[in-house]
Every structure is written in C-alpha cells, then in structure tokens.
Design a protein around this nucleic acid. Sequence first.
DNA 1: GTGGTCTAGACCACC
DNA 2: GTGGTCTAGACCACA
Lengths: 135, 135, 135, 135
Amino acid sequence: MWLTINLNSETAIYTQIRNQIIEGIIAGSIKENDSLPSVRQLAADLGVNLHTVNKAYNLLKQEGFITIHRQKGAVINPAENYRADQDYLVKLSKELRPVIAESLCRGMTRTDFIEAIDIIYNEFKSLKKEAKNNG
Amino acid sequence: MWLTINLNSETAIYTQIRNQIIEGIIAGSIKENDSLPSVRQLAADLGVNLHTVNKAYNLLKQEGFITIHRQKGAVINPAENYRADQDYLVKLSKELRPVIAESLCRGMTRTDFIEAIDIIYNEFKSLKKEAKNNG
Amino acid sequence: MWLTINLNSETAIYTQIRNQIIEGIIAGSIKENDSLPSVRQLAADLGVNLHTVNKAYNLLKQEGFITIHRQKGAVINPAENYRADQDYLVKLSKELRPVIAESLCRGMTRTDFIEAIDIIYNEFKSLKKEAKNNG
Amino acid sequence: MWLTINLNSETAIYTQIRNQIIEGIIAGSIKENDSLPSVRQLAADLGVNLHTVNKAYNLLKQEGFITIHRQKGAVINPAENYRADQDYLVKLSKELRPVIAESLCRGMTRTDFIEAIDIIYNEFKSLKKEAKNNG
DNA sequence: GTGGTCTAGACCACC
DNA sequence: GTGGTCTAGACCACA
C-alpha cells in the first residue's frame, strides 16, 4: 500500500489517511470503482487502530468520495459525486481565509502566494506522471 | 471592539482571536506599536475566560506578531519582525497542500482556485479601505 | 520517578520540571525516543496540577526537545533537533552576561568563574556515570 | 546618564537598572563613593515609575553594592563590601546549572561554552578601556 | 487511555 | 492596573 503516515505529525492520523487517499485519486493511482483495502487490512498495514481507519473512511464517505458496501468494502465514487459545489466553495473559503491573512500579514503579495501554490500544483503533476508510468 | 467570536465554531476560540487580530493588522485597523486590549478587558468584552485570551496572545507573541509588556500589555510589532521566511514557507506549503489536493480532486482547476483566493484578496482590500475611512 | 520539585523555590514549577528533564537527557537517564510520563501521571506523582506539567511539556516541545504524540504522550527527540544554533547562542549570551558581570563586580576572575562552572560539569559527569550504572 | 532600558525586554525593568549599574561598576564608569542619581532623577531620565527605580536601588543595597544615605542618596560601596562569599557561590551555581545543562543538552562542549563566556569577558574589557578614555 | 481546550477563581510580581 | 503562575474541575477529540 502506498500510504505512509507520520505518527509525529501534528495532523491527526485519520486526517492523514483521508488526505493521502485524496492525493491517490488525483494522482490516478486509485480510480473510480477501485476498492480501497478493508479497514482491518489497512489498519494492520499502517499499524494503527481499526477505529482510526474507520474514521477516515467515514469521513471520505461523508464527503462523497467513497461508498461503503457491505461486501465490496470501500469503493471510489465517480467524480460527479463530489464535484465542487457551493457548500464546498464556502468551506474552502473558510479554510483559505486565515492562511491568506497570515501570508499577507507576513508581507507576501498575491504573486508570492500564487508562486507558493504553483509549487504544489507542480508536485501533483509529477505525481500524476509517475503513477501513469507505474500503472 | 472589532472582534467577534463564534462559540459554536469548530475553530478553537483562541485561534479565532489570533486570526482576527492578524486580519486587523492587514486591514490596518491595528498598526505597529498599537496596544491590544488587556487580557482581562478583551476576555470580558468577548465573554470568554482570560486564560483563553492569554493563550491567543502568547501564540501571537510566539509567532512574532506582538510583544507582551508587563505594563502596556500586548503591542503590535513592526512588520520586519514577522516577515515570511523559509520556515514559514514550509509551514504554508504544508497547510495548503491538502486544501489544493481536495480542490483538484473535486474538479477545480488552478484557475478556479485562484478565482477563489481572489475573492478573499478582494475582501481584505475592502476591509483595508473601510478601516482607512474609519480611522 | 527521578523528578523532584521544590514548591518553595523562586523558580516556577513548570521551569523546574523543564530543567530536570533536560538534566535527565544529559545524564542519559532518558534517551532519544523514550517516552516521558503522561501529563496526568507526572502531575499526580509530583502532586501538582496537570496544567503545570502540560506547560512544561509544551515549553520543551517548543524548544525542540520533545515531540508530543496524541497516543504515546511526550517523546524525546533525536539530538539533531535541538543542536545549538545561532539563535541559541544569542539567548545564551543574554543569560550569561549579567551573571558574569556580577561575578566580576564581586571580584571573581575568569579563572574563578571557570572553576565554578567546572564544579557543575563534574556534577553532570557523575550523574551520567550513575545513570549508566543503574540503566 | 549612561543607562538605557528596553521596555520590550523580557527582563523586568528594575532588573535591567540593577544589571546596568553593576556593569557600570565593573567598567569603572562609576566608582567607590560615587553617588548614583536620585531615585526621582533617574526615574524621570528613564521615563519609568519611581517605584521601579526604588526597587532596583533596594535590591543593590540588599546585595551590598550600595548604601542609601538620607542626604547623599545612593552611594557605591567599597568593593570589600560585596566580595564573592560562600552564599554568593551557591547562588551563582544555582543560576549557572540550568544554563550549562541546556548547553550540554544542545551539544555544546565545555570548550564551546568557555568560548561563549570569553566573548562576554572581552566585551567587558572593551567597556573598561572605553570608560577609561572617556573619564 | 492520551492530550487539547475552556472555565473559574486565586495569589504574586511588576509598574 | 498589568501579565504570570497555579489550582481544580469539566468536556471533547483522538487512538
């Protein structure tokens, strides 16, 4: 499994799992209709508690990214199920506002900020290529 | 007082206080060498415990935004004290990465994302104008 | 537990805890990746409030000595995380200056002063040996 | 007056005053039997409260550095009055111990530490020369 | 079980 | 008056 979690991180483990699965989707290493490992399996692989993985999956389900079947386990939904909608834009704005505020306060211009996000966009582009070559 | 906090928010109260003070700095409603209200005063105004305000102030102090005086209370530092440095850029990147990942996953392009941040930049620009007219 | 605090001391309790943990590290009685007792546990052992221990741990975290895990509690960082850097040397100099000034004023030479610090160095050497024999 | 205090410093103002007077003694810019400015005068010069200067003077008196006369005000004592004694050595050791502990913990050797104190000794030597030329 | 947050109320040092 | 420290007791998120 391509997931790696950092126990020392400030970020909650279940959040790290959720974030990496989302990154897996955009990289293309997991696709629509793919199954995620079972809760039990993933928990064992990562050496974390069942509840933790469960919480991550439930969060992803609630956010529309996956559907949890009794038999097939967790399955990636088609992209239509979680297209950015108005609610998401509001949530996104709430997340970004304090981050942008701090960057402004620390003297970063809009251009500096976009430079920072472009580095991240490029990382994701590389990930995508890599996954393509491997898959 | 220009601070308003939301007791029901997911965001910790002390974080809300911190964030709004940062917004106050970029809006220009508080400036270099201005004093913030005393912890007791602000706590009373907001209807929260003094320790909560104290924690917010200590966080701001640790981040370089303010200096805490024994007599004058908390004072805004000159901007040089908290200019974006390498450490901050790393922190910023860590904050932005999962946010950008989710937006990509939900089908937002880089252009859509920049549109979202521009709305926030415009809000801050309006705040700045407003504060200028009031001050 | 190897920690002893003095409630009557001028030094704040949380500072005493911090200092003794640092001494524990240099003595070798706690090592890289060792866990410290939980805040509740240590607070109970020392007969102080859990917030006081919490403050000490947070200070140590901020100084780079420990990492605070959600599950495992506080863990000693590898020494690389808190090697003396320029900032520390400045802080050290600020601490030492008035101490050296007073010693000079009271007629102590540099040699007298080094004699005084050597007594301390020898104490730490003994502590280290002791810990080695016990561990 | 050669005293300069920093209101932003972590160090209490009365402690800064006390420290600088001690530095003045070792530099030779104030000598045995010299009078310090009156409490009122110094407070006015520094722009601080009377009580603050008073506290500094009382501390210096208690430590043996000065005598407070009704008429002549505060007068520097002869050096014999405050020679390092056993009590002072104990106090010094208590001050130095946590400082040395931290430096050790951060990987500084005894040699590194002595290098750091020598920088300070040299600063004081320069101060002394300077004061000699001016006086 | 762990730490994180918040409240309430106290005393002290500093100014 | 200011912030700094400490206590006591509560609830929540995370694992």
